[in-house]
């Protein structure tokens, strides 16, 4: 069974890397990283913070573009061009197809993250060489921890993409739902914290909305837990148990979503 899933994921991976969108995303991110060397000169002293901010944001943005424009199309294309029938005519179950697609997409994200991490490390090393005195408060470990956490967010987000793709054949609707989940996941913590704070308690919001937000905080993924850019930019050390915690959170969330996607896709009428 594992061999079947792996062969499908390799197929998805090859299909993905052939897409020209990946080249565009790569070039855009590299361009963004290369401006680091120019932009940091405009800052007074926290040059390490700015360099880390730009590079980590470029990696996250590349991940988002890949998810929204490549991952979604990879699944929708199979159904649109009816190539899914070729796969289904082979001895693959629908669940294996779903898992194969998901792992293939993760391979693409891993490859993109590896390339971008190497490029951003080079950019930061160059900036560090150029402004050695202003990179004293910089930690490579915290920098790589932030990249790993960002990758975990894409593990969950892509599981959502697969779930929505298993429900609908419209790539536009999948895109819309995925963007909504991303925005909701990124903001829910902030909204909940605000409502619990002093000014938030005084804000006049109906009880219904408060209850809705209470429920939503358990339904929506909390993507803020994966955002460690600020800690990395100030070299604030994060305990290892936090890293294990978010790894477990991403793993559990993704597995639950993938099981749901497999069940839905099993029942789906493809003809």
């Amino acid at each position: 069974m594992l061999a079947k899933i792996l062969s499908l994921s390799m197929l998805t991976f090859r299909d993905g890397v052939r897409d020209r969108a990946i080249l565009g995303v790569g070039l855009f991110s590299l361009g963004m990283m290369s401006i680091t060397l120019v932009v940091i000169g405009f800052f007074m002293r926290e040059l390490n913070k700015v360099a880390v901010d730009i590079n980590l944001s470029a990696i996250s943005l590349a991940g988002l573009l890949l998810t929204f424009f490549l991952s979604i199309n990879l699944m929708a294309k199979d159904i649109d061009k009816r190539t899914i029938y070729c796969v289904m005519s082979k001895p693959f179950s629908r669940a294996q197809y779903i898992w194969g697609k998901y792992i293939g997409i993760l391979f693409i994200i891993i490859t993109a993250f590896t390339v971008l991490t190497m490029c951003s490390s080079l950019t930061i090393a160059l900036a560090k060489l150029q402004y050695a005195n202003w990179f004293k408060a910089f930690s490579w470990i915290e920098y790589y921890k932030a990249i790993y956490a960002s990758f975990l967010m894409f593990v969950v987000l892509n599981a959502f993409v697969i779930l929505f793709s298993s429900i609908t054949s419209s790539s536009f609707i999948t895109l819309l739902f995925s963007i909504s989940i991303y925005i909701g996941g990124q903001t829910i913590e902030e909204v909940v914290l605000y409502l619990k704070s002093g000014p938030g308690q005084e804000t006049q919001i109906s009880e219904f909305i408060r209850e809705m937000i209470d429920i939503l905080q358990y339904v929506l993924p909390n993507f803020s837990v994966f955002d460690l850019k600020m800690q990395a930019s100030h070299a604030i050390p994060l305990p290892l148990d936090y890293m294990f915690g978010i790894t477990g959170y991403a793993a559990i969330y993704s597995v639950v979503l993938m099981i749901a996607a497999s069940l839905i896709f099993n029942k789906r009428e493809l003809s």
Binding site: F43, K49, V50, V52, D53, I54, L56, S57, S60, S150, M153, Y182, I183, Q186, T187, E190, V191, Y194, F223, S224, D227, K229, M230, S233
Partner: peptide, 13 residues
């Protein structure tokens, strides 16, 4: 702060 999503650092810069 909410609208900046995960890009708060670069927005502050």
């Amino acid at each position: 702060t909410t609208a900046s999503l995960e890009f708060k650092g670069i927005v502050s810069d």
